[in-house]
Nucleic acid binder design. Structure first.
Lengths: 219, 219, 219, 219
DNA sequence: TATGAATGAGCGTTCATTCAT
DNA sequence: CATGAATGAACGCTCATTCAT
């Protein structure tokens, strides 16, 4: 109970502050219009003129706040990217590791649930991020170098932890990490991007997915 | 043994014939230049004038062969899409099902290996396909309706087959299918799109992945 | 005398307001350049890029004010079309009819003089209008349905009026109208379009033309 | 009677020979397709590629027979232009003049009827000619200098002839010519170009028109 | 700070014409 | 003689960005 709570806390992100209070009303409208357009038609097929129209703002106003169209993209996408995998980067992650086996399942469950809330809230932006990562070096390097690697390191630590306890099959750590990550990632991708229109029983589905991972990694 | 061979045959695609012999030399150069550009900068950030330049062809020549830029995209991407998941659509898939447990692993192994060859050969196009599916209704509906659903039906048949034999945990069929599909899909995505620069031991990795699925789905 | 004056008033058009005051300086230059080009080389042989050059304006500027090249054409041509035959549509035309025979000649004289002033002022545009009517449904239907038919009705009323007074030969009304209209129209066409370079004695020519009509329609 | 006949002969044009026998089957199809397109959408909005398509001929074939698109236009339009006013240029026109007053009406009637047949046969080409004359110096100068002036001279001779006989009002010859020419021209223009869809009683209408001219020119 | 008119480079596409087959 | 692939200039139009107000 107390554990649950503390974990929830652990991974919580104050989403209200993705973009700070410093955004003016017009800026907010610009950002919202841009998110809408970018996710609908893609970044490079969206025109600043239509963004301005949807935001009910003069075209020049966009460029007062964001020097270029690309800067607007980055302003939208980087905070989400930073926060998306934030829970894995938290310092006291280690504490979690010191807990017992059941808690590993709980840990996975909690983290996935938490990320689902986050993704649901920022689904459009997540889509934009996935779309644009391949074409913008800043995004890609930030994602891979800063975020991907950190997450990998954390997950590696977890896996080693459980492998040492003899609870996980002897497989290359890298594979174990990848299997966990891609299973969860695959689930989230399917759930929110590929087949969002299926009628998902989220509770059930999550349980199954975690079970599948645990089973798969067992000896 | 003989089985292996026949299966290999079963799933083989004559990649040389993705685009028939009917392509002229210039057409080939156009298609190649377009593939290069689309995968580098994305479809809508690629200009027909630069494609022409790279193909060493007059811009008008592109439009003699493809009425529009979009038609060029589709000409590149649809054959790959059709063939990508073709092995799952083969009629005598059912025969495979009548075989024993070990053969299921073999079946998965064979199919993944085969798809790896295909993907490696057409990696750029696969990337383009993934990028553009969200923005082109023709692509999306073709992918989901015609291909996705067929594959799902086949995989469902396989899963039910093994569930009936009592070899698979009692989980919702849909989940079982999704877990298999997303695990393999997740592996391929990671292997070729997200982290292609890792130094992968493909043989080992595949074995682990299959094992993981089999384990995960066991009771 | 006083009558003459009031009639002159009756048919006067404030040509200064063909295009309202709302046109900016650049817009005026665009419109003028377009009129020049369209009348010189025809609408579809005039390029927006050369119009821009002649107007000393960036090409994009044209499209800020007129969504398409065709919209530019219509913006130029429709006000002239509306005003060209406007005098025939005036409500109190009937009053004119209640006057005596001499006044009919005066009426024709006044109307033709008035239209000559208008045509001289907008000659280029009238040429464009005549050229483009066959190829633009909006123009043709507007000209025939809205304007042509109204004018016809008015002229018909006049002719019937004088036929009832026994002053005109018994001919099919339609023919009488056509003869009047085509005689005047033929004169204007010859005067301004076909042989504008003849040295015309306008005063004399008009008198002769009216006399010709009056004579021709007499019993 | 014999007179009538000889006049009919006088003005007859062997329309079959507008374009000589030397046209190959493909050339005929090209010319026909071009006439269709030019009159539908105008010369400069018609593309050689669509003309080729409609003629069921390769695009290159057009340029084998006509060096340029413009040459094709001229090949279509000049024979019609030459023949359109041909009757006025005939040498023995003078003979006609030596005849009496009734014959003048007959003369006008015969000439108009004859030209109606010609126009009906080549209506599309006449339309093209009218459209394109303002934009092609060759056409305009040929029309004005060679044809217009000749016709004018002939008509002038006729008018002077009748004025000398005291049968026509003393008006400037130029005006008299113009009135005749524009009345007939105005009729033909209205009949075939402006309001071809009215249900015309050609016989009646022609009689009225001629009467109108005769009346108008009487003292 | 916010505007929106103005820009001119660049877009996808069409064009009349050429020429090897 | 006929073809149609190839051309590259020119087309109408859109774009991200600038800047005077």
């Amino acid at each position: 109970m107390g554990e649950q709570e503390s974990m929830e806390e652990l991974f919580s992100t104050n989403e209200n502050e993705l973009y700070g209070e410093e955004l003016t009303a017009k800026q907010k409208r610009i950002v919202e219009a841009a998110i809408q357009m970018f996710s609908e038609k893609g970044y490079s097929s969206s025109s600043t003129s239509e963004i301005a129209k949807r935001a009910n703002v003069a075209e020049g106003t966009i460029f007062r706040h964001y020097k270029t169209k690309k800067e607007l993209l980055l302003a939208i996408v980087t905070p989400v990217m930073s926060n998306l995998l934030a829970p894995f980067i938290i310092r006291d992650l280690d504490k979690v590791l010191s807990q017992n086996y059941q808690c590993y399942e709980d840990f996975l469950t909690a983290i996935v649930k938490n990320r689902q809330v986050f993704i649901e809230k920022h689904l459009s932006i997540v889509k934009i991020l996935l779309q644009e990562i391949p074409f913008h070096d800043e995004l890609r390097s930030q994602f891979i170098d800063r975020i991907g690697k950190e997450v990998y390191t954390r997950l590696e630590a977890i896996v080693i932890h459980f492998q040492e306890k003899g609870k996980l099959v002897e497989m290359p750590t890298q594979s174990a990490v990848r299997l966990t990550a891609t299973t969860i990632g695959g689930f989230l991708l399917t759930r929110y991007i590929l087949l969002p229109n299926n009628d998902w029983n989220d509770e059930e589905e999550l349980k199954t997915t975690i079970h599948f991972i645990m089973n798969g990694m067992k000896a």
